[in-house]
Amino acid sequence: MINFLLLLLYVLLLMPFSTSLAMNNPEQFIVESGINSLIVMPETNHLVSVNNDILFTEKVSWLSLKAPSLYMVKAPKTPGFYEIATSHVKLGDGKLQLIVKTPIDTARVKQFNGYQLNSYPEPYKGFVKYNQPQGLIEINKSLENHFLSNIVQIKDIMCKQRSEYPKYLLVDTQGLKMLNQLYKYLLARGLKFSRFSFISGYRTPYYNHMIGNGKNSRHLYGDAFDLYIDDNGDYRMDDINQDGQQDKKDVDYLYQFFLAFLKDNNRQGGVGKYLPNSRHGGFIHIDNRGFNARW
Rank of each mutant, 00 (worst) to 15 (best):
Leu6Met: 05
Met15Gln: 13
Phe17Cys: 03
Phe17Gly: 04
Asn25Gln: 11
Glu27Pro: 03
Gln28Arg: 09
Ser33Phe: 05
Met41Lys: 07
Pro42Glu: 10
Glu43Asn: 15
Asn45Glu: 14
Ser49Leu: 02
Val50Tyr: 06
Asn51Tyr: 14
Trp62Asp: 05
Ser64Lys: 15
Pro68Ser: 12
Ala75Met: 08
Pro79Arg: 05
Glu83Arg: 11
Ser87Tyr: 02
His88Trp: 09
Gly92Gln: 11
Gly92Trp: 08
Lys95His: 09
Lys95Thr: 09
Pro103His: 08
Asp105His: 06
Gln111Met: 14
Tyr115Ser: 00
Gln116Glu: 13
Tyr120Cys: 04
Pro121Ile: 02
Pro121Trp: 01
Glu122Trp: 06
Val128Ala: 12
Gln134Ser: 15
Ser142Phe: 07
Asn145Met: 08
His146Ile: 05
His146Arg: 12
Lys155Arg: 15
Ile157Ser: 01
Cys159Pro: 06
Cys159His: 00
Leu179Lys: 01
Leu179Ile: 12
Leu182Met: 11
Ala188Ser: 15
Ala188Asp: 14
Arg189Cys: 07
Lys192Tyr: 06
Phe196Pro: 00
Gly201Ile: 01
Tyr202Trp: 08
Pro205Val: 00
Tyr207Ile: 10
His209Thr: 14
His209Val: 09
Met210Pro: 00
Ile211Gln: 05
Gly212Trp: 03
Asn213Lys: 09
Lys215Gln: 14
His219Tyr: 02
Asp223Phe: 05
Leu227Tyr: 09
Ile229Met: 07
Gly233Tyr: 07
Asp234Pro: 08
Ile240Gly: 00
Asn241Gln: 10
Gln245Thr: 09
Lys248Ile: 04
Lys249Glu: 15
Lys249Met: 11
Leu254Gln: 00
Leu259His: 10
Val271Cys: 01
Ser278Met: 04
Ser278Gly: 08
Asp287Leu: 03
Asn288Thr: 03
Arg289Gly: 14
Gly290His: 01
Trp295Ser: 12
